[in-house]
């Protein structure tokens, strides 16, 4: 089942299938290891619900929900 990373619940994980978004944001996501076929796990949400923290390629990455909405993930 494909889902946007921004809609993930805490603890869910999956494999990235597609990265959309405007040039700069997309570039940054790639550079930080958010690429198709990478495994990603939702770690937690900030106290105010946004941004979120995910584990990708063995480290902790934080991004806003708007940016996470660019990432399509196949839920495991």
């Amino acid at each position: 089942m494909t889902k946007l990373l921004s809609d993930f619940a805490v603890g869910e994980s999956g494999v990235i299938t597609k990265v959309n978004g405007e040039g700069r944001i997309r570039r940054r996501l790639f550079d930080m290891g958010v690429t198709p076929q990478a495994e990603v796990k939702m770690r937690k949400k900030a106290p105010l619900g946004d941004p979120i923290e995910v584990t990708v390629r063995g480290y902790e990455l934080t991004l806003r929900k708007v940016e996470a909405a660019c990432v399509e993930v196949d839920v495991k």
Partner: peptide, 9 residues
């Protein structure tokens, strides 16, 4: 500005 950053250990 986008907020995509590493949370270092």
């Amino acid at each position: 500005p986008p907020f995509i950053m590493e949370l270092p250990a």
